[in-house]
Design a binder for these strands. Structure first.
Lengths: 148, 148
DNA sequence: TATTGTTATACTCTATAACTATA
DNA sequence: TATAGTTATAGAGTATAACAATA
């Protein structure tokens, strides 16, 4: 196996493990990977319509309805009337939602530090640069109309 | 944001993109990520019982029943009587299943070459080494009983 | 006429529990 | 008594299509 394929496989393996680790940390509770992703985007965007969330998450509006239903039931977000468009709702984080994200962000920082501990700054810089190139190329490959 | 968190985020981003790319390449056909994973394990293990597949995939035996049902319907695998245990079945790849995996492996090799093209051997070696360390640490974190 | 969100329907992946046939 | 696989049931994530309210 050539080095590039080996790196590719390691990348996938690391990704799967991180996903599993994330999913496991939610297990049993009302939060799941998809719902947490919505919380994350919601904090990034600020109070948003479900259409905006659907676009940000890359899923269908119908799917967002279900995710918001669950997150509203667990008091992580709440729906409010849109001030100027009576068709739309504005989804916002509750205090509990904000607390949840803050905690997750701290855990992410701690995990990153644990995983990268002992790796030299030079090596991290190399990994960062290569991963950036890979993601850029992937995005180009996946949107052929924009890449040609 | 510190460098380690940045690398962590890039790792997740690359992983998500690769997953999306994989899922998209199956879109519309009978193959999905989970079914393809089963094919992959089946080739690695050789003809296997569903129990063995469940263990290899880390899912419930009931889940394997559904995956094998679908893969049998699309002629990627077939069930046969176990020679010595009449409770069990032996799942094997059909010719079509073998062809499918061979094609996917070639595509993986091509994608890896495309993504890593132009990256120096030294840099790839660094990335490989760091990713290996990260996956090892993740595994230790996720199995505390084995790690202490 | 277009957009927002919902109801209706369906498929996939996943799980646990109960059951049948066999070991 | 234990194991292999299935049926039964359930929940989560995802999708499209049809629909009501509003723009």
């Amino acid at each position: 196996m050539t080095r590039d394929v080996q790196v590719f496989d390691r990348l996938i393996e690391a990704a799967v493990l991180i996903q599993d680790d994330l999913a496991r940390s939610f297990a049993g509770g009302p939060l799941t990977v998809a719902r947490t992703h919505l919380l994350w985007e919601l904090r990034r965007l600020g109070p948003s319509t479900q259409q905006a969330l659907a676009a940000a998450l890359g899923v269908s509006p119908r799917n967002v309805t279900g995710l918001v239903d669950a997150l509203e039931a667990s008091d992580h977000v709440h729906r409010a009337a849109h001030p100027s468009d009576r068709r739309a709702v504005l989804v916002s984080l509750t205090r509990r939602g904000v607390r949840t994200i803050t905690t997750m962000e701290r855990e992410r920082t701690e995990l990153a530090a644990q995983l990268a501990g002992g790796v030299s700054e030079e090596d991290l810089e190399v990994v960062d640069r290569v991963l950036e190139m890979i993601t850029t190329r992937l995005r180009t490959l996946m949107t052929p109309e924009a890449g040609s």
